[in-house]
Design a protein around this nucleic acid. Structure first.
Lengths: 346, 346
DNA sequence: TTGTATGCGTTATCAT
DNA sequence: ATGATAACGCATACAA
């Protein structure tokens, strides 16, 4: 592979001049610049980014640590991250499937020297883990509790969104509302459960543990949880799933059981993934601006990278919005033919 | 940020010894090793991977270039890639939204010095573009035509899968079968269309251009295309969508129009994304082992990286499988409660 | 406008 | 078992 030296030799100039052509081309004479560019092209030369970043101490890359990669939620988050990052000239190095603290810390160390900052999405992370990351590496936490304010974070307005959705179900007359909970130990899951409880409390309903099922945030989990819930006596009349994947699993289970939605069972989800409106019946959900979530985290991270020193810790909260569709049984906000992007998908 | 020198000084050893501890720890005395590790921990030292790869000329990273990031298909591919790559100790640097040749080539150059190999998924790529990548960088093409055999590639058995699905619809008695085509210029889209044509030809059906609509591989595109198809006279009795996203859009459109599936319109998709079975009715599709696709591409790439010289170009083809569910109107292969992974999703 | 020389943080080679 | 030092490929301060 051709190096800057090869180009310099071939073009009869010094490496410094070649370097200048590939950076501040301004000060080099046009004809020599052209000659250098020609030689570089013929040699298929491209600067070695590793070497370059060694001296500039800039990688133009941000690291993204994820727990997993299933489903539309993640692809939307990554999309938002990717768009914003590359819009600012940054690359993305993605590492997923980190389920415990040890793995995460190892992954964080492995990022040293590869990235200018870290985007961390993990229910298992806490402030202590961050102590193991090389200091001075900017970090933004995504969907995780940033205890204190020692680290930047972007979180979803889970509590309010869940409370609002359950309040909506209550306002429709439901008295026995079940919840399919998200993954254990997950921050979003815990907050959404808290919102559910708050709404019930505000309506003076008695809490009922038999109406709370684990669903692990997956379709299959939602399916299984629904099967369980239908066996509870007296039967719930509404199911609030802590995310859309589980709600989709619930719809599937209810269909298999011959339970009509929303006539005999109201169903609601959370996240409002793109597919929610394509369900039958279209799924009521709590809209989360998913790709925005990623985009804002990147924005915050880039700010931290640029203003490393005078950067004050901050915590952003993306707001949610109730989206009522047919599955919850109310008159609908929305039933137009979808006017979404019609871009080439792949 | 602490460097190897800081650790060496603090531990009163040379940098060479520190380096040995972090690599071939075998030859260093246990007590000095421990001292060095302690110092490193207290300094929060982690080796600088950029510097390391500069001299080892290994990055332990593979680059992934994608055209886009929408939908479940991509997240599944990436999942397969990620799992296989990190299983072999490789990181992933992902770059998407590359829609034309110029962008792709720029992205490829930007990868120089960051990656040991490249995974390329793009309808717009051809052999010429590859000439602009620094030679000796292994490349695997994903879902793209590798003209000749000058480059490794993994492709889907599109033609056969599509022909089989359309044949299935024909065997159910359909005579007017519409197709919602994928994105223009896309290899998969073209091959699936070719399979559709082949099946019609084999049944001695007259080709009918009014039954072919563009859908761009998106849900919204599938929705819009279906609206158009329903206006065609005489009306088709079956719709074959070139991917599941569009099929889901089609189901949604048919529901809005009050057309019953499969009684009044059979629908089939392609890819068999995880959601297909959760549709109402469950979607007949052509199963593509999506995450395998990514996994095998990585395997091929790693082989190319390891055996750079004696690596012969190869071309793998992942096979598809007809999955008949209710949407196509046939007696079903499948209708069990889903027994899928119930792992924590996030 | 261009060239020379130094150093970024690490590993590898050769000593000791 | 450990140390000194030369690379790796590049950008940049300083000279010319």
């Amino acid at each position: 592979m051709a190096t800057i030296k090869d180009v310099a030799r071939e073009a009869s100039v010094s490496v410094a001049t070649v370097s200048r052509v590939f950076n501040d081309a301004a000060v080099v004479r046009e004809d020599t610049a052209k000659r250098i560019r020609d030689v570089a092209a013929s040699l298929r030369y491209a600067p070695h980014n590793g070497a370059r970043s060694l001296i500039t101490s800039k990688t133009s890359t941000i690291g993204v640590l994820l727990p997993d990669l299933y489903g539309e939620f993640f692809s939307e988050v990554i999309r938002g991250i990717d768009l914003t990052a590359r819009g600012s000239g940054y690359h993305l190095i993605i590492s997923s499937s980190h389920n415990d603290k040890v793995e995460i810390e190892a992954a964080m160390r492995a990022m040293r020297g590869r990235v200018d900052g870290l985007l961390l999405m993990s229910p298992d992370i806490d402030a202590n883990s961050l102590l193991n990351v090389p200091a001075s590496l900017p970090v933004v936490l995504l969907c995780a509790p940033a205890k204190g304010h020692e680290v930047d974070s972007v979180i979803i307005q889970n509590f309010r969104g869940a409370r609002e959705m359950v309040g909506h179900l209550i306002s429709l007359g439901h008295r026995r509302i079940a919840i399919i909970k998200g993954a254990l130990g997950n921050y979003d899951a815990a907050e959404r459960l808290r919102g559910y409880h708050a709404a019930l409390r505000e309506a003076d309903f008695m809490p009922d543990g038999s109406l709370e099922c684990d669903g692990g945030f997956t379709e299959a989990g939602g399916y299984a949880a629904t099967m369980e819930l239908l066996a509870v006596k007296p039967c719930p009349t509404a199911i609030f799933a802590a995310n859309d994947s589980m709600a989709i699993g619930a719809l599937s289970a209810l269909r298999d059981l011959g339970v009509r939605v929303p006539e005999n069972m109201a169903v609601a989800g959370f996240d409002d993934i793109p597919l929610a409106r394509y369900m039958d019946p279209p799924l009521s959900s709590v809209r989360v601006p998913i790709s925005d979530l990623g985009a804002r985290a990147v924005g915050m991270l880039l700010h931290g990278i640029t203003h490393k020193n005078e950067h004050t810790r901050r915590r952003e909260r993306v707001s949610t919005e109730l989206v009522v569709r047919r599955s919850s049984g109310a008159p609908c906000d929305e039933r137009p033919p979808p006017a979404r992007r019609v871009r080439k998908q792949r």
